[in-house]
Nucleic acid binder design. Structure first.
Length: 270
DNA sequence: GTCCATGTTCTTTA
DNA sequence: CTAAAGAACATGGA
């Protein structure tokens, strides 16, 4: 159930082995999970070399030679495994790619199927419809995005505004910046906006350094769990004392999602 | 049986 | 047009 740091962690694993590899077999499980123009995903992918692995927001793409891409979004429960072709195939595996001359298979597994894969035979659609990636955000751009009369949590979660942030990292960044999630973007001061962006950058970088957050069962493409969950300050800490001020962390609803707030550090907007 | 889940999209209501 | 709330999607864990 990956946000930007988890997807970035997977991308870094894939980059160690995939660039230069040539796709051999393509096996599609559920047809409705893998979207592709005619004739078939296999026909478009077989025999093509992986040029690079790229990420934008929560999506990742294998860029193919000479052009074209395979874009993956993991939704809530999606997972990518890269390992020996002989390894047992887990349930809910919807796509398998093997590679020429290598005992290697890439599998996309997703029990809830909120994610999906799409094949673009002659273009790179990884950023289609998404805002700028959260990792490369520049201050003036961020300022413009946030200058709306909308709850800041909803704004940060909107992938068309900023790509990559999800429920965990939004809650963590708002806590770190001392901003209540229901505050309207237009009510943030200049210094608050600057501080929020700084905290977002810091937290994303730290989460990537710790290979993401494993809450329940997230694993990277080699099966390793993340370590950043041990550093969460509000997410999943309802009822526990705030490490900064000692107040009890509460859970509210914002943008339709469970939202974790410290009433001491994040003053309610009203 | 209940509630909840690292996501997205659509519908309704204001 | 904008924003918010709720439901929907499908599966599994506590």
């Amino acid at each position: 159930m990956p946000e930007l740091p988890e997807v970035e962690t997977i991308v870094r694993v894939l980059r160690r082995r995939l660039p230069g590899a040539v796709i051999a077999d393509v096996r599609v499980g559920r047809r409705d999970y893998v979207r592709s123009p005619r004739p078939s995903a296999g026909a478009h992918l077989r025999g093509r070399r992986v040029r690079a692995v790229r990420r934008h927001g929560k999506r990742l793409a294998l860029l193919l030679e000479p052009r074209g891409s395979l874009v993956v979004h993991l939704g809530m429960s999606g997972r990518i495994d890269l390992g020996p072709a002989s390894a047992p195939v887990p349930r809910h595996t919807h796509l398998r790619l093997s590679f020429r001359g290598d005992d290697l298979e890439l599998r996309v597994t997703d029990p809830r199927r909120f994610g999906g894969v799409s094949v673009a035979p002659d273009r790179d659609g990884v950023a289609d419809g998404l805002g700028p990636d959260a990792l490369g955000l520049r201050r003036p751009v961020f300022r413009r995005i946030v200058a709306r009369p909308r709850q800041i949590k909803a704004l940060l979660l909107d992938q068309r505004a900023i790509a990559g942030l999800g429920n965990i990292y939004v809650d963590e960044a708002l806590w770190a910046a001392g901003i209540h999630p229901l505050t309207r973007g237009t009510d943030l001061g200049d210094d608050e906006v600057r501080h929020l962006l700084a905290q977002l950058r810091r937290i994303l970088a730290a989460a990537i350094r710790h290979r993401g957050s494993t809450i329940r069962d997230w694993r990277d493409a080699r099966g390793a769990s993340g370590g950043f969950q041990a550093r969460h300050r509000v997410y999943g800490r309802t009822g526990l004392p705030c490490v900064r001020c000692g107040a009890t962390i509460v859970r509210i609803l914002a943008a339709g999602r469970s939202t974790h707030v410290c009433p001491g550090c994040q003053p309610s907007p009203g």
